[in-house]
Structure formats: structure tokens, C-alpha cells
Amino acid sequence: MLAFTLKRLGVALLVALTVSLITFSMIYVSGDPAIAIAGEGARAQDIEAIRKFYGFDRPIIEQYFNWLIGALQGDFGRSYTLRQPVAGVIFARLPVTMLLGALAIAFALVLAIPLGVLAAVRPNSLVDRFALTVAVVGQAMPSFWFALTLVLWLGVHWRLLPITGSDRWQNFVMPAIALGYYVTPAIMRLTRAGVLEVLSSDYIRTARAKGLRPMAVLFKHALRNAIIPVVSLSAVQFGFMLGGSIVIETIFQINGLGYLAWESIQRKDLPTMQAIVLTLSVIYVLLTLLGDLLNAFLDPRLRVA
């Protein structure tokens, strides 16, 4: 298990490093950064001064390593527009997005797993039909439209929940539902398929042959095996939601990373964008690692390094 963990950690580090390289090169893909900062119609000597000030005149390799060493120490440079260190901005916004993501994935899991299990235990029953309906609707409905529908009914019509902001817990209810419902169908269908497949396996027959009660068969023997692919998917979806919350955060004006990303893109604030992408990517890599470790805990066959 230790060897397995170390190996996965090593792979995760390599992935993170690759991501950092790609993130760094974003600056040059989008054109001359000095011109971008100086603005159109700037004088040549101003551009040159900016280029020197930000170190754009140095060799790219040197720039990358300087940036990387800084990033490792939590220094992502200064925001072009906010006039303050990017790291501070990110760390102020990150908890909000993490909270939203965690609430959303929790909502998705709480809805999807019981529904998926019930649908698998009673295939083609009413519960199964209902679960299928939930899945189809969730897949077909764009999340921004669903979010606006929630705002319209829960916020405007019935006045149950606040529409914008991120100060109180009530602010997170609608965004979490809107964001979580989007990933519910995939998790539910995978749970259903997994439980259905496991229930027809030989070791379930063995468990029943031992005289175990249906609940023990389902929860001890079936669910543990069926949930393994769901763990991987949920980890990936959680990471995806952190990045994908841009739309939801914008709709609800939640001061999270997604909203910040949207602002920085509009203001062409490259260091902030870089830092957001890198932060989200590293979190994503860590989540995948966590998913792998959780699966190795669930299935001893995966513990082979």
C-alpha cells in the first residue's frame, strides 16, 4: 500500500509539473504579454519598460523556472489589474469555490447513489423509471438554464432563498443544487450499472448461499465492489465542477475562483489566470490521487504498485 501510494504520488507530481509548463506557456500563446499589459497604442519605450519590469526579456527557460520557484513558494506574481499579489486573491477566493464544489458533489452523491442502488435492485420498476427520468432531465438541461429556473422559482417567485452573494449558507443552496444536479445522472447511471453487474456475480451467489440476509448481501458484498468506478468518477467530477463552476458562480455572483477567472479573462489579467488554472489543475490531480487511494482501500487487487 505504501509503495502504491508513493508511486501514485510520483505520477501526480509529474502531471502537475506538466500542467505548470502548459500554464506558463499560456502567456506566449496569447501574444506579446508586454503589449497586452501596456494596452493598445502604447509607446514603444513604455512597452520595452514593461518587458524589462516583468522580466519578459529573459530567456523563456529562465522565466519558467523563476515562475515555477515562485509558484512553489506561493508567489504567483502580481495581478496586472488588481495591483496586489495573485496568491492573496486566489487564497481568498478558493475556499468559496471549494465549499460550493463540496456541497454540489455531496448533493449529487446523496441523490445519485441511493437512487442508482434502488434502480439496480429493482430494475424496470417504478423507482428505476423515476431514476431514469431524473437522469435524462439532468443530462438534457443546460446547467445555466436550470440555475436561472431555480432563481426564478425559489428566489423570485417564492422568495425562499437569496438570489446572489456568498456570505450566508443560504446563498449556497441554489448554486450547489444547480451545479450538483448536472453531474448526478452520470454518477447515478454508473452506480446502477455497477450494482446490477455485481449483483449477478458469482460471489454474490456465494454470499446468499451462506444464508446472509439481503441487506448484508447488498451493503457488505455488492456495494463495496460496485462503488469503485463511482469513486473515480466522483473525484473527476468534483475537479471538473471546481473549474466548471464559472458559469454558476457568475450567475449567482459568488465570489469564488470561477467568478475571478471570468473577471481576469475579461481584463486579460494573465498572472491571475495562470494561477487559477494551475491551482485548479493541482487540486484536480490531488482529487484523482485521492480517488485512486480510496479505490485501493476498497479493492485490494488495486494495491499492486
Partner: peptide, 12 residues
């Protein structure tokens, strides 16, 4: 059973 390879639960 006939299938010793698959009759035991891999997780326990």
C-alpha cells in the same frame, strides 16, 4: 460452486 476463481468476494 463450479467457479472457484470468481466465487469469493475480491474485497474481503
Amino acid at each position: 460452486f463450479q467457479e472457484p476463481m470468481t466465487s469469493l468476494n475480491p474485497a474481503y
